[in-house]
Structure formats: C-alpha cells, structure tokens
Design a protein around this nucleic acid. Structure first.
Length: 371
DNA sequence: ATCCAGGGCT
DNA sequence: AGCCCTGGAT
C-alpha cells in the first residue's frame, strides 16, 4: 500500500475532483460561439421572447417547439398582450405542445411580471422563482440569458454533460445527486458570460453529448471527459426505472352532422379541460358499446344508438398507453350546442379550440375514412 | 410498435 | 414520490 494521505487533492478548494474549470471554460465557449444553432430566441434583445421560449422548452425539444413558438408570438407579440389574454386563448395557442399547465402558468407569470415588475422579467433569483411555472432551472436560464446573472442552469442536457464529464455514476433521479450537480455546475460556470455559458452547456448536451449517439470526436472536452476515458459515456447518466405502463381504453362517440363533429370538454385529470369526442376512459374494452351508450345518454340527455367501430388510434401519455376507439353514433334528437360544454365543430373550428394531440389524431383518422 | 427525452408542482 | 404530454429514434 502506498501512502496517499500526505498529498491533498490538487483542487482542494473545489468540491469535486477532475478537470479544472479554468481549462474547461474557454474550450466550451469557443466551441459554442463557433458551432451553436441559430434559434429564433437566441441573440434577441427581448426578455419576453426568452420567457416564452423557456416555458415552451420545459420538457420539450427544440424541433417540437419551433412551429408553436412562431405561431404563439404572432398571436401574443408582447408581455402585455399575453397578460391581457384569456386563459382559453392562451391554451388554444398552446394546443399540441403538451403539458398544458405550462400555458396557464406562462399567462399567470406574464400577469405577475406586468403588475409587480413593470412588465420586465425580473433579475433577482427569488423573484424569478416566485413566478408560476418557474423552478430552479428556468429561474437560472432566465436570469442568465436575459440579464447575464451568474446562475447555473441545470436541465437534463446539463446533467448528462456533467455526469459524463466527471464520471458521476449516482442516479440523477435522486434529489441528492441533483443538488450535487447544481453545485458542480455553479463552480464550473463562467460568471462573466453566464448566458452564453449556460446555453453552451445545454447546446453541447443537445447536439454533441447526445443520449444515444454521443459525438465524442467533435466534443471540445473529449480529452477531459472521465466517462469517455473509461468508455462508459453511453451508460450515463444513470436514472431510476420508469413506472410500469397502464393500459387505458378511451371509448369515444363519433357524432357527425354536415361535416361537423360533436366535441365536449374532457373531465378526466389527464388532458383535463381539452375539447375531445365525448366518451369515457375504461381499464379494459369489455362492454365498451353498452358503457358508451349509458354514458352518452346521461351526458347528452338524448336517445343514443351505438354503431360500428369507425377508427382506432393509439396515444401514449407518460406511462399511460391509451387506445382510442371511435364508434359511430346516432341520436334522437340531435344534441344542441351548450356553452363551454358541447360544440358542433367544423375542422376550422377545431383549430380555434383547446385540444390535445390525442383528439387531433382521432379526428384525422375519421376524416381520412370519410374522405 | 416501443422507448425515451425533457422541469415543475403537489 | 407521483403526476403531466408529444414526437423523434430505433
């Protein structure tokens, strides 16, 4: 056994062992300035645009966000227009993006920014975190990108970069690991260029330090990366096992009349409040027809006849695997529109309602059938 | 068809 | 710790 107690770690002032920030920083920043993607919210002098982009980018990848971002900005061009919009208007503009709570939070955040911060995204970390829908990550992203405040932003990309760079094999599902990674990110941060630094970390994670196909040969940190040296990059980050999936059968009634389809408001927790074809969620498809008939007669208050299955689509939400069964329905008499509950919607109307991708998929399947 | 990426709230 | 959505990769 060789004695090792006599030599303290070279980086004793830091909470981690491994590459030195002073070496790492210029490598990443140079790489970023040369290689980053041109995105519509990058390099703009608009706190509002950054705010909208950060909310959309929560749990959502750039490619998915892009088309929604442009539409949303056209619809709500500035902080005040968003603050003054109704919840319904904002949800509609958010349709298809998912995690609809974010749309409501964003509107509420805009209202708070207008009323408490003179319509400008605040600078102080606690003020940022006090905004609805803003947690540690988003507060740091907004503060650094808009105001160049030295807050380290740690999202999933950054956690992947850090666990690989330092060869951290603890599960990132543990809160304690996340705390450790945030501290690490804060020490690594280039405090003079926090906005570029955070975006560089995320850009590296998104484009080079990818989950399945890391492009180590073009990584500015290749020679410093512990996981790369050990050949375990693909094994990191470690995370907890996902929950088992639950089967859900959505039994929906297709009421068609002169090119219009009857939609009602969803009352189940999943996708709550979105407009959809009327029906019910079941654990199994047993007795679907009869259950649907009872449900619709109760819900619509008319006599209901359930016909043939018209279409079937699949949709997965988190750990729910949903099979949507659409049955042809005849009623007597025809149910009437009812404000905020029932609407006979043309395809054009559907675009102006708060819907989910599940419903759009089913409507598309039916439209294809009918030609 | 399945797997998996991606933050905040309660 | 459990819950929420969509789409791209495989």
């Amino acid at each position: 056994m060789s004695p090792r107690s006599s030599s303290p770690p070279a980086n004793a002032s830091r909470s981690f062992n491994g590459p030195d920030p002073l070496n790492l920083r210029p490598l990443l920043l140079t790489w970023y300035l040369k290689n980053h993607r041109q995105l519509p919210w990058r390099g703009v002098d608009s706190d509002y645009k950054v705010l909208v982009s950060e909310f959309m980018l929560q749990q959502t990848q750039v490619a998915t966000v892009l088309p929604h971002y442009e539409r949303f900005l056209t619809r709500f061009p500035n902080m005040v227009s968003l603050a003054q919009a109704t919840e319904e208007e904002v949800e509609t503009a958010w349709s298809g993006l998912g995690y609809y709570r974010r749309a409501r939070a964003l509107r509420n955040a805009a209202q708070q920014i207008v009323s408490d911060h003179e319509a400008e995204v605040p600078t102080d970390f606690e003020d940022l975190k006090a905004l609805p829908g803003v947690g540690d990550y988003t507060a740091a992203a907004l503060g650094s990108i808009i105001h160049d405040e030295p807050y380290a932003a740690v999202d999933g990309n950054v956690m992947r970069v850090l666990t690989r760079l330092f060869g951290i094999e603890d599960s990132i599902s543990n809160t304690s690991t996340q705390v450790k990674l945030r501290a690490l990110a804060q020490e690594l941060l280039e405090p003079e260029q926090a906005g570029d630094w955070n975006q560089a970390m995320m850009e590296l994670g998104a484009t080079v330090c990818a989950p399945k196909k890391p492009l180590c040969s073009v990584c500015p940190w290749e020679e410093h990366c512990v996981a790369h040296a050990k050949g375990i990059a693909l094994d990191l980050p470690k995370k907890a096992k996902p929950k088992a999936t639950v089967e859900v059968h959505r039994i929906a009634g297709v009421l068609l009349e002169e090119g219009r389809c009857l939609l009602t408001r969803r009352t189940e927790k999943l996708l709550y409040g979105t407009w959809e074809l009327p029906g019910l969620d079941l654990d199994s498809p047993e007795g679907a027809r009869e259950r649907l008939r009872e449900h619709l007669e109760h819900k619509l208050g008319v006599e209901v006849m359930v016909g043939n299955p018209l279409a079937r689509v699949r949709h997965s939400i988190t750990h729910h695997r949903i099979q949507v069964h659409g049955y042809a329905i005849k009623t007597n008499p025809k149910p009437r529109n009812k404000k905020n509950e029932r609407i006979w919607a043309s395809p054009g109307d559907v675009a102006n309602l708060h819907t989910s991708s599940m419903t759009i998929k089913l409507l598309n399947a039916i439209a294809k059938l009918k030609g």
